[in-house]
């Protein structure tokens, strides 16, 4: 088979591009440590979330001075809880699951983004250094009121923080 010289050059350049992409992303994942959503959250029984140790108790929980956990349930058309307040300068781990159908979670203006699938727990961790307001929305169609499913995360100065939900 005869291959034109330009074609060979193009082929080589294409391969280089591909390997380059894979390389950068591998570096991003392994070197810099960009965290991905994976199976670390484990699984739950979506029909018995009330008696689950984590999801029986939704809301913000303090692990230590700088680390907080947020347990969330998505159920059409709301997030439980939908108003979240955390102190600035903290690391927050979100645990989310769905009790009805598949939902999504995106914190606007950030790269926090995950699917929320019945039976699975999405675990994502982020750092919030500065006070600020963030909206979050459900980004997967989940029923006729899907477009109303949203919430708010306030990062407040440490001394204004109202504490965990009771």
């Amino acid at each position: 088979m005869e291959i034109h010289r330009y074609e060979t050059i193009w082929f080589a350049a294409s391969l280089l591009l591909i390997v380059g992409f894979i390389g950068t992303i591998t570096y991003g994942a392994v070197g810099v440590g960009v965290e991905m959503v994976d199976d670390s959250g484990g699984t739950v029984d979506p029909d018995n979330l009330g008696s689950h140790e984590r999801f029986g108790d939704t809301g913000v929980h303090k692990v230590n001075e700088s680390h907080y956990e947020v347990n969330m349930i998505a159920v059409h058309p709301s997030f439980i809880p939908s108003e979240i307040e955390i102190p600035a300068g903290s690391t927050v781990t979100f645990y989310m699951t769905a009790s009805d159908v598949t939902h999504g979670f995106k914190l606007v203006d950030s790269n926090l983004n995950t699917m929320i699938i019945p039976g699975q727990v999405s675990e994502i961790t982020a750092e919030f250094d500065e006070p600020g307001e963030y909206g979050f929305v459900c980004h997967e169609y989940c029923g006729s009121l899907h477009h109303e499913m949203a919430g708010n995360l306030s990062v407040v100065p440490e001394d204004e923080w109202g504490g965990v939900d009771s």
Binding site: K106, V108, D109, G135, V137, C138, H146, H147, A150
Partner: peptide, 19 residues
């Protein structure tokens, strides 16, 4: 890129703004 979701009848939420 501003974060507006797909598959949404009304991407106009209270308290969520896309910039």
């Amino acid at each position: 890129l501003a974060g507006e979701p797909r598959r949404t009848a009304e991407p106009f939420y209270d308290g969520v703004t896309f910039d």
